[in-house]
Design a protein around this nucleic acid. Sequence first.
DNA 1: TGTACATCAGTGAACGCGCGTTCACTGATGTAC
DNA 2: TGTACATCAGTGAACGCGCGTTCACTGATGTAC
Lengths: 201, 201
Amino acid sequence: MRRSREDTRRTRQQIVEEAARALRAEGVEAMGIGELMGRVGMTHGGFYAHFRSKDALVAEACTRGLDEQRAALLAAAENAPDGEALRTIIRAYLSRRHRDVPAEGCAIPALSTDISREPKEVRHAFTDAVESYAGQLARFAPGDTEEERRDEMLALLAGMAGAIALARAVDDTALSDRILLASRALYQRAFASDGGEEARR
Amino acid sequence: MRRSREDTRRTRQQIVEEAARALRAEGVEAMGIGELMGRVGMTHGGFYAHFRSKDALVAEACTRGLDEQRAALLAAAENAPDGEALRTIIRAYLSRRHRDVPAEGCAIPALSTDISREPKEVRHAFTDAVESYAGQLARFAPGDTEEERRDEMLALLAGMAGAIALARAVDDTALSDRILLASRALYQRAFASDGGEEARR
DNA sequence: TGTACATCAGTGAACGCGCGTTCACTGATGTAC
DNA sequence: TGTACATCAGTGAACGCGCGTTCACTGATGTAC
């Protein structure tokens, strides 16, 4: 039966939130519409009152997942002591927690492989979100121009995402930990004390 | 009908080779047994004369894919001019060609996200292959001990894999190229002239 | 070396399964008067 | 403000589809004598 506008809005938002979690935890294919709607307390048929297709939801949930992580990193960097913003980003991203809880982490290591095989609709949303992700964190990266800083941040995010993805893939905790630690050391060294907003203050 | 031992051996090898390509091009889920057997010139039923299950093939094909790429990078590094081995690895890995032809590239950027959701059998094979991948290339990385060099190489491979995966995921050629170029610059800088086999000669 | 029989690689129909999507239906909400 | 009606969020059965896997069968290969 028909629901109030407020209920409808809330339901739609819950679906996107659950999808953003499920996507990162299970991947695009494994995230089922039925399971998702069950988590929101409804049956699968109602889904299509909110979204044109699964792809449309995936596109929106990708954006959501990336925006969440961007906001978390931004907050961490802004609260970091002077000159420590980029180090803080690197430490937070390459943490055991981030490796172990994909559902609440960055969508790049969880989904980049899947996304390249998705339809245009999804890839486009993902691309836009990645650009604004790197764009908003760029001020913490070294470089003389906005472009340089954004490119540095893109390379850093891509690299850290690779480290998390590989650390999740391997079946050996010791090896996984070594991947995280060695990657931390690598990026801290590459972006040592020189760059970033603080150096320009 | 029954085939000669030589035929059987050849068929099995063809299946693994096609699987190693298809896996990297399409991902684990999308690689179908029927399609694969069709490419080898047979029907799907014959598959189970060679493999216990799809998972068993995926495990073997992962190893194959990683070993191929390791051999290619090893050859490139060994043929590089003195002091250029690591730079050559970085240039070859972070190339447009590698981004554009996943079927013939490294299995890490193509599969790491998928692998973390696969059964133990697959993850274990992948893990072993990754260890020997990093182990065999370790001599080109900086570090005083074998362990240090292997960890550096793990971090480098993970990072470069992340760059390739993200470059493949985004829907914008210019952004994709910038990810590759910025990543090249990052790793060339981080592993500048100091490290590696040549520096220890 | 020749023969009889067991083996087994490959065929193709059939299986169960889970998926995304559709659709007739329900009944509370929103709207027009 | 009250009433009549249109709207539409949600239900749950049904759809087609493609997948991995099984299985009875075929006939050339391998093996035992």
